[in-house]
């Protein structure tokens, strides 16, 4: 259908395009800066966007390969960046998976079951979530210090402790999934119950497959939050080999010596797992999954 358009439409479309391109440039500029810094010779934060003497020095060091300088001297990689990256991925995948499991079952209870103080609990969760985790750092530190006396792999300076600490940010996810569950007609699970399904089977075979889009979104959100998290990890993790990439990158920034080039290479590296997870989950984020099931 061709709708009648005003005559000055072309002009308005073009001006909208220009504004959007400008906006895009502003958004992307910091990203290009980081890539540029990581490819510069030496560790300089300022300089032209296109490096004059491009060098892979920082990337070699970030990937753990010794770098041979122009004068023939060898620079050894100062930090185990790939180990940090691997730590980050382990923590992010485990905590996101646990968040998904707990938030989904929790959301099911809030969306489908009847129990006392439900509304109060939902509100309380939301309010508690509003306090930044940073404020609880002391508590988190001493808690895991104590837990470590009994369960060493959950104590201070263990990836287990960070993973568990990240589960705290779940209230938002519960709200998100609960909202999605409530859009799915209850009669589907009732039909499943009459077909002989136990409540668990109705949840597993009917509700969950229909909720895949929101589960993918929650997984991505939890994954990104976990990769980028700094304060909690910086307090709980201490030894060099246990750091996550976000905390480890800070090691490049010494008071007298900011290694911006190495830092930039590590920063770009931390973007890879997020990109891969996002591309992998994208195909699950589709609309119309529940259409056709019920009418009315």
């Amino acid at each position: 259908m061709a709708m009648v358009q005003p005559r000055n439409l072309k002009y308005r479309v073009w001006s909208a395009r220009i504004v959007m391109w400008l906006f895009l440039l502003i958004i992307l500029f910091p990203f290009f800066m980081i890539i540029s810094v990581s490819l510069r010779t030496g560790n300089f934060a300022t300089g032209s966007l296109i490096p004059q003497n491009p060098s892979l020095e920082h990337w070699y060091l970030a990937l753990g390969i010794p770098w041979e300088n122009a004068d023939g001297s060898i620079t050894q990689p100062p930090f185990p960046v790939l180990t940090w990256l691997w730590n980050s991925i382990k923590v992010a995948i485990t905590s996101s998976a646990l968040i998904l499991i707990l938030a989904t079952t929790g959301a099911y209870a809030f969306a489908r079951l009847r129990f006392r103080f439900k509304q109060q609990m939902l509100t309380a969760m939301m309010i508690l979530q509003m306090f930044p985790a940073v404020l609880a750092l002391v508590a988190i530190y001493s808690l895991f210090d104590k837990i470590g006396d009994y369960i060493p792999w959950l104590g201070l300076d263990s990836l287990g402790s960070v993973t568990i600490a990240y589960l705290g940010g779940m209230a938002l996810h519960i709200w998100l999934i609960k909202g999605y569950f409530e859009t799915i007609d209850n009669s589907l699970e009732e039909a499943a119950a009459i077909d002989g399904a136990t409540p668990w089977q109705a949840f597993r075979f009917v509700l969950l497959p229909l909720s895949v889009p929101i589960l993918a979104v929650v997984f991505i959100l939890a994954f990104i939050a976990s990769i980028a998290e700094y304060p909690v990890a910086s307090v709980l993790l201490q030894s060099m080999d246990n750091l996550t990439l976000a905390v480890g990158s800070r090691q490049y920034l010494n008071p007298q010596n900011y290694l911006w080039g190495d830092f930039a290479a590590a920063a770009v590296l931390s973007g890879f797992p997020i990109t891969i997870i996002f591309l992998a989950c994208q195909r699950w984020i589709v609309g119309g999954l529940t259409s056709g099931g019920v009418k009315g």
């Binding site: 007609d185 009732e190 039909a191 009459i194 009917v206 497959p209 229909l210 099931g293 009418k295």
Partner: peptide, 14 residues
Amino acid sequence: RVGMVFQSYALYPH
């Protein structure tokens, strides 16, 4: 072991 037909059909859409 009863069968039920709902007004809204309640078919499993997936």
